[in-house]
Design a protein around this nucleic acid. Structure first.
Lengths: 232, 232
DNA sequence: ATTTGACTTAAACATACGTTTGAGTTACAA
DNA sequence: TTGTAACTCAAACGTATGTTTAAGTCAAAT
């Protein structure tokens, strides 16, 4: 390769991501993508082969970025001495679940893209489940079973759906929630309260005490900021 | 009007509903709708004026059918003597929340249509929030505040999101959940367990005891079967 | 200076889209 | 029988779609 300018390719990826997330696959024309990326229409088929392949490429990039960042919660919970300690770790895990979608610096369209894929009976759904949901599901299940060993596997699965489901609700139904509450967007303070509430809900269901206030940090999501970009 | 055959109009409404729910607005062509309804393409514009108006009409019909059926839970909870009684009423309310989407006889596409509308930044979202979510939101908020009077309004709102959010998760992410669990569909027994779990989660968060087994019925969703059709 | 290969571009391609037209059919009223 | 209004239909309308073509640009290698 003599010289490559990945500028247009990346511009197309970004523009396509935002438009696919906003308007869906069928609602987005390659002309709109090209215009937004300030590129020629043919550039899409040159760089990606087809609109379908572009979509798959965007989804692949998003799946690599949106995932549950397990910071050793399983080991922490196994080593926890008190029920209070377990509750606090579950609160941190809840925060990590929310960070996957709401960490500052993470583009909002990443989540919308994932949520959209979840509704379509397409290959995209298989990929999202395999790349994003399955790992999070298994990780959280193990954490719950460690936090309360008497839990059956099925009960642990329902606990995961309680935790991840509530978070996904805030992602997926964001527009509706904002209208309902008369807000313009999710402010950090609101998200903090939501996280505290979900954590209290989950710990209460396990018979654990409510998580105490964070001890070593101020308790915001910025600790979960985007990790560095990987060169392709 | 000399003679009217609403057959094609209703066939179009049904076919359009199923297709819009499955493939989305942009993914559904009026030709596909007409073919599924065994009608002529022009019949759509004759009966509804435009594809947009057809969509609005379908959404209107769905909004009239999908709603939280409040069976006097607020009064019941206000008159409840014991915490156990309150917990049981909340369990019944949880069942009603689920019934809104999962009652047998209710076509699955109703829910999909609502969930889709929730993702689009369109007038449809406004309608769904106003017709469906706002009433359920206010009703559940009042029930929670009655169940635990010390709850602030904000706490009650978070409780509503815990309850309704978990239910909406099971609706919206149904395809993903089924893949994750290796199931083919939500069987009644599974839904029962999910309802019991969500109810336990919610009552625990309020500091109430776990709901006891239903006393007067076997506890399935069939009590929430579709009410009769209204003639137009 | 020429070649090479990566990339961009305007134009054209065939198809699919939502909508409209105008003739035709049917059932009932006058 | 004629008239009217509700409804259906095949065909066509103009536009937008995803894709392809072929010419063109540019920087580095030969």
């Amino acid at each position: 390769m003599a010289h490559e300018s990945h500028d247009t390719k990346e511009a197309l990826l970004l523009a396509a991501g935002e438009l696919f997330a906003e308007r869906g696959y069928d609602g987005t024309s390659i002309r709109a993508i090209a215009e937004k990326a300030k590129a020629n229409i043919a550039a899409i088929n040159y760089h990606f082969g087809s609109k379908d392949a572009l979509y798959a490429s965007v989804l692949g990039h998003v799946c690599r970025k949106v995932h549950f960042a397990d910071a050793g919660y399983l080991e922490s919970v196994r080593g926890a001495a008190s029920a209070q300690e377990k509750a606090n770790i579950l609160r941190d895990a809840t925060r990590a679940v929310f960070a996957k979608d709401f960490a500052p610096g993470r583009p909002a369209w990443h989540t919308r893209m994932i949520m959209r894929s979840l509704m379509e009976p397409s290959p995209a759904l298989q990929k999202v489940v395999h790349d994003v949901f399955r790992p999070e599901f298994e990780a959280l299940k193990a954490i719950f079973r460690a936090a309360k060993p008497t839990l059956t596997e099925e009960d642990a699965e329902f606990m995961v759906f309680s935790l991840a489901g509530q978070e996904m609700f805030y992602s997926f139904a964001q527009s509706g929630v904002l209208i309902l509450l008369g807000r313009r967007d999710y402010e950090p303070a609101f998200l903090e309260k939501a996280i505290e509430h979900v954590a209290r809900c989950v710990t209460a269901a396990l018979g654990l005490p409510a998580p105490s206030l964070p001890d070593n940090q101020s308790g915001d999501l910025s600790a979960f900021d985007e990790e560095g970009e990987h060169a392709e």
